[in-house]
Write a protein that binds this DNA or RNA. Structure first.
Lengths: 193, 193
DNA sequence: CCGTGAAGGCTAATAGCATTAGTCTTGTGA
DNA sequence: TCACAAGACTAATGCTATTAGCCTTCACGG
């Protein structure tokens, strides 16, 4: 039946994301992915250099989807909130957290790599932070925006990771705790000191 | 030569931690661990139910070491700083971050697991947070200490993870950024609102 | 003393996985 | 029309975790 391609690279990535999310990363084998398209595992090597490259592509796709989710969340805020940078930022951060909740496994994958080759390339990484930094600049001014952004991003990412890792075991309203933590940090930013 | 044990469970865990940190998690095979003790891979099954159980033990050991590192950092502060809860807390958080820098791979392992069986048991998890919560209670009062702690922990954990994942690529003084972020959050806590 | 059994080692075997090599088929463009 | 590149397949390799079954040593009750 070949050569007419039975499979598109983008579809492979999408299906891989789906399988990772539903079955777990360790259950994604080249076998299982190929089987989902009715082809044999080695055929995947025509589309990806190796499994690592596939996973890197998955991470890049996840990062893009995360950006979209953030922007969508921001644009759904009331006009009033969009005008106020602090409110706009908080809307984006809520969107960020909701994305992580909706895609916990693939979200973790993007950031969980100590060193390895799975990191999204710098361009994707920058696209991820840019919307946040723009708004942060409107909150604290461009000069302080980089460190302020890093702290805020760290807070949100850390909160989400600890949630996903099941470290917040003592219950309580996590939605509220998140809101409070973010606002606390923003309050600190507003301090002169 | 058997039965006198050639190997102690605790030594296996220590060596595994060492190998994971120096070679990477994916390079730790039961082969390689067993070889380091001059025994065969299947013999490890007398000491651990399976590889997952070994890794869970590694995670528990890492969590304990992290607590020790935090407490050591706190006790090395000046008497003055120990008396001031905010300063004491900041010392502990610096100790936390230094530990993560010194043991990046194993540190990530403890928290990077979305769901899997690698989580340290609840007792270990609680021991990890207890010292932080005690001090946090002295900063903001017992009532608010849980959410305040969660935010602070999230900030520190997130910062460290983003550092380790190489997401803070635009350089700058990260030590300083960390200090600033933590202080900003603490400032926010001090606000009445 | 002896013998028995558990602890802890070993080798051999299995099944799953990523990856490579080599073959075959089908459109496309010269 | 016909070569050739793309893309599929099967077969084979090597590394893994894990299981099964065997063998040796010592602690301990009789």
């Amino acid at each position: 039946m070949p050569y007419p391609s039975q499979v598109q690279r983008a579809d492979l990535i999408d299906k891989a994301r789906e399988l990772i999310e539903s079955e777990g990363l360790d259950r994604l084998t080249l076998q299982s992915l190929a089987a989902a398209f009715g082809i044999a595992a080695p055929s995947l090597y025509h589309h990806f250099k190796n499994k690592t490259a596939l996973l890197a592509a998955v991470n890049a796709a996840t990062a893009s989807a995360l950006v979209e989710a953030m922007l969508a969340a921001a644009s759904q805020a009331s006009a009033e909130d969009q005008a106020d940078p602090t409110s706009a930022l908080i809307h984006m951060l809520h969107g960020y957290r909701m994305f992580a909740h909706a895609h916990p496994v693939t979200y973790s994958m993007v950031f969980a790599n100590t060193m390895s080759a799975l990191k999204p390339d710098p361009k994707t990484a920058e696209a991820l932070v840019l919307p946040l930094q723009e708004i942060m600049a409107r909150v604290v001014g461009a000069a302080k925006s980089l460190p302020a952004l890093r702290g805020g991003w760290a807070l949100v990412h850390g909160f989400v990771m600890l949630e996903l890792a099941g470290q917040f075991q003592r219950g309580g309203d996590l939605d509220n705790a998140f809101e409070t933590a973010v606002r606390t940090y923003m309050d600190g930013l507003r301090q002169p000191e």
